[in-house]
Amino acid sequence: MNILYFLIGTSVIMALLFLAAFFWALKNGQHDDVYTPAVRMLFEDDKPEEEKPEGKE
């Protein structure tokens, strides 16, 4: 059962890593706007052939 000491240590360190990742994300401003990205991802990608009909103007 001594393996538990190792496992507990690992789990705490991993959790600390996740916490650090959250800190980084927060400092980076990723939580400043939590609404817009959800809408943005639904847009169609810009198609390259959109350039074509320019002669029509």
Partner: peptide, 20 residues
């Protein structure tokens, strides 16, 4: 932001303490 940091830390502590 400061408050969110504190919530994150306390959430982290809570999860671990529950486990132990």
């Amino acid at each position: 932001r400061d408050l969110i940091l504190k919530i994150a830390v306390s959430g982290f502590c809570m999860g671990n303490v529950m486990l132990f």
